[in-house]
Design a binder for these strands. Structure first.
Length: 272
DNA sequence: AGCCAGGGTCTGC
DNA sequence: GCAGACCATGGC
């Protein structure tokens, strides 16, 4: 991997195992939109980004080295050796097929609060509708960051809302959970920064204190929001994987990287 | 029309 | 500890 600035873009070359479309649209993040010209637009950490891929080259549009190195390098998990991880997982034949089918998925390192809130919204819901609810949440309560994009609303804002005020985003029964989570985070009953330093098990127990957060939402938050690549979210699709492929449990090669294995298997079974 | 969706809570055994 | 009802909404 190497990168350099060119005009107002950052060019990333020879990025191992990086399929941009799969990474942004495999059910781990909900705010990236693809336009006709193949450019993906979105926002994270309060910054807008347009990004595209042609062959092995990733172009970060209208940004600079400072933002690239302080935000996007981390967000796209570019320091992790996915080639090594994939080779390890290929010891299992199901994972070998899954990796062949969706090679280049990376686990994004998203913001803890946005991840937590997004996956509370995800419960008993489908991906297109999750995206719609989150769009309306950001438009209604986030800050305008230009180009028709809005930041993800901070806990303080959502903590001050009533379920009635949240009704227009049409989150249904999840509205009260979002508010409870925001209040706990804002009042520091749940310390998201502190969770960063806890072992996986204790971090999960902290998240489970939030109403509307069960094991699955907690595991998603750990995996996508706290960079815990051994977290293993089990939704209806992964249940099907476990029932169909691994009735005796996950293979040994997934040890300590179960979350990444999960992402390949999840996307594989949903698209095959 | 009825089933399903990146589930969780609450109640009743 | 575990099964079952219930929860809002909209895509298919």
């Amino acid at each position: 991997m190497n990168y350099y600035a060119f005009d107002n873009d950052i060019i990333l070359e020879n990025a191992d195992c990086f399929n941009l479309a799969l990474t942004l649209d495999c059910g781990q993040a909900f705010r990236w939109k693809k336009s006709e010209n193949g450019v993906w637009s979105g926002a994270a950490f309060g910054k807008r980004l347009d990004i595209s891929q042609t062959d092995g080259r990733i172009i970060f549009h209208n940004t600079d080295l400072s933002d690239f190195e302080s935000v996007w390098l981390n967000y796209f998990d570019l320091d992790r050796d996915y080639a090594l991880i994939c080779n390890t997982l290929r010891a299992d034949e199901n994972l070998d097929r899954a990796i062949n089918a969706c090679f280049g998925i990376r686990i994004l390192r998203q913001e803890p609060w946005e991840t937590l809130c997004s996956f509370i919204i995800s419960q008993n819901n489908n991906i297109p509708r999750i995206k719609g609810i989150i769009d309306r949440l950001c438009e209604s309560f986030g800050e305008d960051i230009g180009g028709g994009f809005y930041s993800f609303p901070v806990p303080e804002i959502i903590a001050s809302l009533t379920p009635d005020e949240l009704a227009p985003i049409r989150a249904g029964f999840r509205a009260k959970y979002i508010i409870d989570a925001a209040q706990k985070v804002f009042l520091n009953e749940i310390n998201l920064d502190g969770i960063k330093n806890l072992p996986d098990e204790q971090a999960r127990d902290e998240l489970l204190k939030i109403k509307g957060v069960g094991v699955k939402v907690a595991e998603c938050t750990l995996l996508y929001g706290f960079n815990r690549i051994n977290a293993f979210p089990v939704d209806v699709w992964v249940k099907r994987v476990m029932y169909g492929m691994y009735p005796g449990g996950l293979p040994e090669c997934t040890e300590n990287i179960r979350g990444i294995a999960q992402q390949y298997l999840f996307h594989y079974i949903r698209t095959s």
